[in-house]
Amino acid sequence: MKARRDIKTILILVISIVFVGLIPLFIKGEYVLNMLFLLCLYTILSHSWNIMGGYCGQINLGQAAFFGIGALTTRYIWVAGYPFPVALIAGSFSSLILACLIGIPTLRLRAHYFAIGTLGVAMIALITIQNALPGVDFLPASLMSDYNPTIRFYTALIVAALTIFAVYCINNSRLGLAMKCIRDDEEAASATGINVVRYKIITLMLSTFFAGLAGGLFAYYYVSYYYYVPFELMWSFDPVLIVFIGGAGTVVGPLIGALCYVILKEIFAISMGQVNVLIFGVVFILIVLFLPKGLIGIKKR
């Protein structure tokens, strides 16, 4: 019974990834490619939040710092002349190191205090970068000459597929089970012999690793941007929204959430400008009130 459900999930995931991968072959244009890239980027970023928030129940609002440091490091190493995959991995590890330095102390905080503490981390990172690196990060001409958005989109797609696969494995592992226990009842988790602190640290490291990957892809795709842009707080809040739209603590949920988010944002941002932020606030409240398990919860009801 459970095995059959697993096969169904895998099928849905594989078909959707292949489908997304085929779209650029039939619909040409940078606009579509950009949307698809954002879909992949948001899937990775929201899954990174989902690991910590959805599975382990720790509301981390510092994701922007980890996304940003991943972008900064990846870009720096890539521009310095190393192949992009090396830069990307280095970027992810830089997020992981930041997590060890800053994240682990904040894990001593519980519940709301953890959320506020991590938000503080994100704000400190943002303000630091705004002051330390006020300029615009341009790609050098040597890298511009072979710039190809199609390749960049497919890179993002592969990373997204690997991320989803990793979350799928976590979901079905003992680690995943321990994470869900900590989310449901920390004290009962310790009472069954789970080392809560150790698992929270492992979860944070996994989560930030994927946030760093997403940041690296951002740095790979965009030609020029202000240094502080990947540190902006929206990279903390968007994944929360996406995960809740789709369904927290699930493998497929963030995928659905990212799709809805990219489409809605495109519609609202074009027609309403900054008011779209207000609309997403309302969407978030409605989702939490009426669909606490996200869109994926509708089917289960």
Partner: peptide, 19 residues
């Protein structure tokens, strides 16, 4: 009791044998 109420009975038992 503090069970993991959204998990199945079997999962709860497996968690008991986590060490």
């Amino acid at each position: 009791r503090r069970l993991f109420s959204d998990m199945t009975v079997l999962e709860n038992l497996e968690l008991g044998a986590y060490t």
